[in-house]
Nucleic acid binder design. Structure first.
Lengths: 208, 208
DNA sequence: TAGCGCAGAATTATAGATAATTTCGTTATT
DNA sequence: AATAACGAAATTATCTATAATTCTGCGCTA
């Protein structure tokens, strides 16, 4: 949403396209033509190509040399894969973050959780959910890990917005509270396994 | 090594630079100037910029808007981070690969292990080691996970070639055999935890 | 002497033009 | 009627040129 105007054009295009793909405005498998996109953004195709590379590294598009890029598909298998990766990596991050979590941070997380619970639409809920996870994981101080988790989150969001999953609020809220309780009690290992199980539930609902 | 001539120039440049960074020919923190590199490769700077993006997604360089790219540093912390991520993700991959592992695949892996044991230099050893891991993990059939592991492997190789670690063969060989034994016995969970521990040892030796 | 600011140089980012490759529709052949 | 081959149109990849930004060294001031 907040497309910082100071960034490079390539970064702006990348963000805009990412949002569209996540929101489902561009369907999976659709070809992205650099000239058309360049024209739409009033830019040349060079920054568009750079934007494509960024999207590729996030796993939102796939690129074949000389044959263009297309929006990455997401079968149920791929959704499960992302969920499993998230579970493994977020658990790892939480184990390392736990020693650095202060009372204030946990309160922040609880606030984010409440915000999510009050959210009216999926976008707002997803925003709050991501904030919650970020707050409790960032203190691990492992930038590469956090970047990887963030990209996986994005992929998950795509799945969420696709409407495959309608009932999200309740179990999430309960899991989040359980995680916070365990962390407050100093039981990092418990918190990590609840988190892992929690994340995996995303991949367990089939499209209906 | 095998720079396929049919690929795009950007891909070739990316591969060559990646090899140099891994081999330590370009030191951490060094600035990469697009014009200079373009001149060296007899190309314009456009494909060079694309190559930079690929390297960035592999974590080999870091890029700041309008300030160029520089070779990613690797402190001991970063090495540990990569090792922990590898441990988590390779264990996950192995759990999913285990049901699909055949006798033939395990024999292949054992052969790769023997090759590594006979290797004279670090490059050959690393090559065999990567092959071993790839053979037992690929059957998991999770492309995104495998790509992530591969990039982490590359980062590890960089550490290895930097000479921080001189004594690598013996414990690796033993661990690899233990993993194969567990897999042959159908004990996937045991194999996964040995693998996780094995990978983490990479980050445990300090620079001397 | 230390710090500030201002050219000039170097470098990154984008635009516009060109070459190379793929895609797709049409025609010819069996 | 189905298929193979050809050619035009579309598209990707690259090059050259230009604009915008950052870096650097030097002189000036306090």
């Amino acid at each position: 949403m907040t497309t910082a105007r100071s960034d490079t054009i390539a970064a702006q295009i990348s963000r805009t396209l990412a949002n569209r793909i996540i929101a489902g405005e561009i369907e999976a498998g659709a070809k992205l033509r650099q000239d058309h996109i360049a024209e739409e953004f009033g830019a040349s195709h060079v920054p568009v190509r750079e934007a494509f590379r960024r999207l590729e590294s996030q796993g939102l598009v796939v690129s074949e040399p000389r044959r263009g890029v297309r929006v990455a598909g997401f079968s149920l298998d791929e959704v499960r894969e992302v969920a499993e990766m998230r579970a493994a990596l977020e658990a790892l991050a939480l184990r390392h973050a736990a020693p650095h979590l202060t009372r204030a941070i946990l309160d922040q997380a609880e606030e984010a959780n409440r915000t999510g619970d009050r959210a009216g639409d999926v976008q707002a809920w997803e925003e709050a959910n991501r904030t919650f996870h970020r707050i409790i994981l960032t203190p691990c101080g492992m930038p590469r890990l956090l970047k990887a988790i963030d990209d996986l989150h994005t992929a998950s969001a795509r799945f969420l917005f696709s409407g495959w999953r309608t009932e999200w609020e309740t179990p999430t809220d309960r899991d989040h509270r359980a995680i916070l309780d365990a962390l407050r009690a100093g039981q990092a290992e418990t918190a990590a396994s609840v988190l892992a199980r929690h994340v995996q539930t995303i991949g367990q609902k089939s499209p209906q």
